[in-house]
Write a protein that binds this DNA or RNA. Structure first.
Length: 980
DNA sequence: TAGGGTTTT
């Protein structure tokens, strides 16, 4: 049976091979029956197709027709052939026919890829026509939403995206016996990916033929990539193009003016040329970088008084109607001002002259800032040549390059392929889920930079599509099933959990198509007015939803023609609305397959925008000033002025896109609440903990937390219990602040005892005005550290811990004097520093302070206001015994020098005097003076003694309190207080 | 205060 497989249809043969492989070469009876069935069917298919085959003919006018035999031979003898030829060579339409004549497309399909949908459709149409058929017979095409291939198809023209998507279920691309990858030089992501994939596939599919066609650039690279595959060059059926370098003069800073002048001069040269050659006015194609430049130049040209000249703008955002004007007949000269859209995607007919500014906006992705940029850059030589070629299609042409030849020569040969300029998240996810292995080992023609790959993985990690080890998650697998940008896929999946899938589907489909709102140059105001009812001031996403709802309501009631009219009136592109609906329908089906739940009730703003936010975590921004926002990764952005949200300027926004053009713009934005972010971004936010501190009230260590999302603070200072963050630090603070410093109410008996002991010693220090009695705090800290288990970090822990201690253990927690005293305490301390002053049976409480800067430094006597008059004012001068000596020394030292020198050394005289002094309600100085006179005979006048200039602590501080014990007056002038 | 061009399970 296996020998007969060669005569069998490719798809059936593959099924048989697979079954045999699965049964390890020993199929059972049932399998054999099945296989025989497949074989019959496969052979019948082949016979059928062979019978149908009519040899195709080749139009003599096409250059490729001269090489038909060479090409066929090359295909028959090689697995891969590179065919290089310029536009007009006929390669796109003729190569599939050559393959057919060579017997390809019998056992399997001839797959033929195009970069664009329109091209796929028209190419299929042309090939079918040349075979005398309509599409859907031997030649069909498949693009998104449309498939015209059938059982009879031998050639299937499709977008490269379709072929790529087929890889997902058909790893060996078994249904094809031949693949033609057209326009490979465009080097789109899809093309690079397909070429890498095919290179891997070739050895596993020896019967598969691959033809790579390209413009005559990069062919050597392609050939090398495919093991030195032969290159066949086909000449183009084009006319010579005279390239003239006309570099700009004037101010380099004013590029617009330079280009305007350059274009006008080129127009003069064209007119001269036509006069000299007696030619009628020919059409001109001008390449400019963008819409703005097109508008400004078109204004100038319209006022330039060029005779019989029509100026048409051309760019992708233009409505179909406006674009189609380039295909309408006209009289006189037409000047088409175009972006790059005319370089590859659209062919402007009848162009005789090209004026090339030599620049274009090229999308570049910055890994560093995660910003997609659209800088205006000089185009590559290949691109410039492609532009020039646009005027040699109907007759010899002239291309004016508004730069000089050296400039051209110094330019890069080719435009960087897309894979080097784009975020790779989507590619990586597709590759990983379809089992293509690691992107780093995939045989790319030009492998992307490691940083770009890492960046792609990081985005996937942010979206939860891969885990931190870069393994695809279940979520990632679901996301990969959705034909969407991974960010949008993420939104979709989460929205079903949020109860907002219905709305999110609409919005995501809307974000996947070009903006359906049209704003024609001459009807901007009318368009704005028509769009006004859709606008939402808080969310551009809701604006999209409003457009959709409007359209759907109309659609259900109106005929297609009426609907078209309504769209036109509302300045909505009917085509794009239809595309939107197609995508919506496709996504709805996949959601159903993936069992994502559609909500019945309409979603709240919050649930909808949380889903959106989940896909756009890296695109959050907070308002700084009026129009300026600070986005994640320290990017300064501005809301795109076209957004209605820019009028209200909410504090926090999320943006579907951040793109740098003339500035960094956030486009398609919505107001969000910052609290929504953290729960969605738990895996990417960073926490910073700071300022741990003891809080007596909560009996635990609290701290603060800063939460940031890619450098943007979404929570600046949140109070949190610190024990989870740093238990060791909490224990440390608990010991220091709660146990040692005593800022804590404990029920533990040893705590009360220890505190009492410490209080006593501290009080003694205050009394004796020394700080060398009590050990350093560190000794106490060490005491508790030794005894406290590591997990005791708060009051709660502490209380339950000590309650289960044994009596011995409890005793061990008690401080002793030995633990806390640095030196022995003076036994007389109590009498030297009494706690009361007793006078005539009244006890006045004394308190002590040792704080020289404090008003209360020294001894304070407290007296009720009622007792004030009876207070022995003179007795207070005697302070307490412990301070009397110091006071006497200060008094003597404060005497005028002439007197003082009689009592040197002062301490000796004072000590001697003190022998005979007894505290009384007599002035201290007087008594002291009397003793000194007795010893020396020197008399001291009362007013010689120092008074107010004694240190504060050597004068009794008197505090007067009311009946309730509340202080009402205080000071050291006892008599003054008494008289008040 | 204004944006190049494509494609899809």
């Amino acid at each position: 049976m296996m020998e007969q497989l060669d005569a069998c249809n490719q798809l059936e043969a593959a099924r048989i091979h697979k079954l045999v492989a699965r049964k390890k070469g020993r199929p059972g009876q049932k399998d054999l029956e099945k296989m025989a069935q497949w074989l019959d069917r496969g052979q019948a298919r082949v016979t059928e197709r062979q019978a149908m085959h009519k040899p195709a003919t080749f139009p003599a006018s096409l250059p490729v027709s001269e090489r038909v035999d060479d090409i066929r031979e090359a295909i028959e003898q090689n697995q891969v052939v590179i065919i290089a030829g310029e536009t007009g060579s006929g390669k796109t339409t003729q190569i599939p026919k050559i393959c057919m004549n060579s017997g390809r497309g019998i056992r399997g399909l001839i797959g033929h890829t195009q970069p664009r949908r329109i091209a796929a459709r028209t190419v299929a149409g042309r090939i079918a026509e040349e075979l005398g058929e309509q599409t859907g017979g031997q030649v069909g095409y498949q693009v998104r939403f449309t498939d015209t291939t059938s059982d009879q198809s031998r050639v299937k023209v499709m977008t490269d995206g379709i072929l790529l998507s087929e890889v997902q279920h058909d790893r060996f691309l078994d249904r094809y016996d031949t693949l033609i990858i057209d326009e490979a030089h465009e080097r789109s992501l899809n093309i690079d990916f397909l070429m890498g994939y095919l290179r891997q596939l070739l050895p596993k599919r020896p019967d598969l033929k691959v033809i790579i066609t390209s413009a005559t650039i990069e062919v050597e690279r392609f050939s090398q990539f495919f093991n030195g595959a032969p290159v066949i060059e086909v000449s183009g059926r084009t006319y010579p193009v005279d390239v003239r370098y006309r570099s700009l003069t004037g101010d380099e800073d004013d590029r617009d003016q330079g280009w305007t002048d350059g274009v006008l001069r080129a127009m003069e040269e064209i007119e001269q040329h036509e006069r000299a050659e007696k030619q009628p006015p020919g059409d001109v194609l001008v390449f400019l970088p963008g819409e703005r430049e097109i508008r400004s130049l078109s204004k100038v040209l319209r006022h330039a008084d060029l005779r019989h000249t029509e100026v048409l703008p051309l760019y992708s955002r233009l409505s179909n109607q406006e674009q189609n004007r380039i295909f309408q007949g006209h009289r006189g000269r037409r000047i088409v001002l175009s972006t790059n859209v005319a370089e590859t995607s659209l062919t402007v007919p009848g162009i005789r002259y090209v004026i090339d500014t030599g620049v274009a906006r090229i999308s570049r992705y910055s890994v560093r800032s995660k910003i997609q940029r659209l800088p205006i850059e000089p185009v590559s030589q290949a691109s410039a040549n492609q532009r020039a070629g646009r005027c040699g299609r109907v007759a010899p042409g002239i291309c004016f390059r508004l730069y000089d030849e050296t400039d051209f020569i110094n330019r890069p040969e080719y435009t960087d392929p897309e894979i080097l300029r784009t975020n790779l998240a989507s590619v990586i996810l597709q590759m990983t889920t379809s089992g293509l292995g690691d992107i780093r080992h995939f045989p790319f023609l030009e492998p992307p930079d490691r940083r770009l790959i890492n960046d792609g993985y990081k985005l996937l990690e942010e979206l939860g599509a891969v885990d931190d080890k870069r393994r695809v998650t279940n979520l990632g697998r679901t996301m990969a099933r959705l034909p969407l940008d991974p960010r949008l896929a993420r939104m979709l999946v989460i929205s079903s959990e949020q109860g907002s899938l219905a709305e999110t589907l609409v919005i995501i489909a809307g974000l996947s198509v070009q903006d359906p709102r049209e704003r024609p140059q001459d009807k901007q105001q009318a368009a704005d007015q028509a769009h006004a009812p859709f606008n939402d001031k808080e969310s551009d996403f809701l604006t999209l939803l409003n457009i959709w709802n409007f359209y759907e309501e109309q659609r259900q009631e109106l005929s297609q023609n009426q609907l078209k009219k309504v769209c036109q009136k509302s300045f909505l592109s009917w085509m794009r609305m239809r595309e939107w609906r197609d995508i919506h329908r496709q996504l709805t089906l996949i959601c159903r397959e993936q069992k994502l739940k559609l909500n019945r009730d309409s979603a709240s703003y919050e649930s909808l925008h949380k889903a959106i936010l989940a896909g756009l975590l890296g695109q959050v921004a907070v308002k700084l000033e009026k129009k300026e926002y600070l986005a994640t990764r320290n990017r300064k952005v501005m809301i795109f002025p076209g957004s209605k949200v820019s009028k209200t300027g909410p504090k926090w926004i999320v943006a579907a896109e951040i793109v740098e053009t003339s500035r960094v713009f956030a486009r398609v934005v919505a107001k969000i609440e910052p609290e929504w972010i953290e729960p969605l971004a738990g895996h990417v936010v960073k926490h910073h903990f700071f300022e741990p501190h003891w809080e007596q009230k909560r009996a635990q260590v609290m701290g603060y937390e800063k939460v940031s999302l890619y450098g943007l603070d979404i929570i600046a200072k949140r109070r949190i219990p610190y024990s989870k963050v740093d238990p060791a630090e909490c224990r440390n603070l608990f010991i220091r602040r709660a146990l040692v410093e005593g800022d804590y109410q404990s029920r533990a008996p040893f705590i009360a005892r220890n505190r009492e002991l410490l209080d006593t010693v501290e009080n003694l220090e205050r009394k004796t005005r020394r700080r060398d009695l009590l050990v350093e705090d560190e000794v106490l800290v060490a005491f508790y550290e030794q005894r406290l288990p590591a997990d005791i970090v708060s009051g709660r822990h502490f209380e339950s811990w000590w309650k289960q201690l044994s009596a011995d253990q409890l005793r061990d927690m008690e401080l002793t004097e030995a633990d806390i005293l640095q030196r022995p305490v003076d036994e007389q301390a109590d009498s030297l520093y009494p706690d009361y002053l007793e006078w005539e049976g009244v006890r006045y409480p004394l308190s002590y302070e040792f704080e020289p800067t404090s008003e209360r430094d020294g001894v304070t006597l407290q007296a009720p206001v009622m007792a004030l008059k009876q207070l022995p004012a003179r007795r207070l001068e005697w302070l307490v015994p412990g301070l009397l000596r110091e006071k006497c020394i200060a008094l003597v030292k404060g005497l005028p020098k002439a007197l003082r020198r009689n009592f040197v050394p002062v301490p000796d005289f004072v000590d001697a005097a003190l022998e005979n002094l007894q505290a009384s309600n007599e002035p201290l100085a007087l008594q002291l003076g009397e003793q000194l006179r007795r010893m020396t005979g020197v008399r001291i006048d009362a007013d010689a003694w120092p008074q107010e200039d004694l240190p504060k602590h050597l004068r009794m501080n008197l505090r007067v309190v009311d009946d309730a014990g509340k202080p009402i007056a205080e000071g050291r002038e006892t008599e003054k207080l008494q008289s008040e």
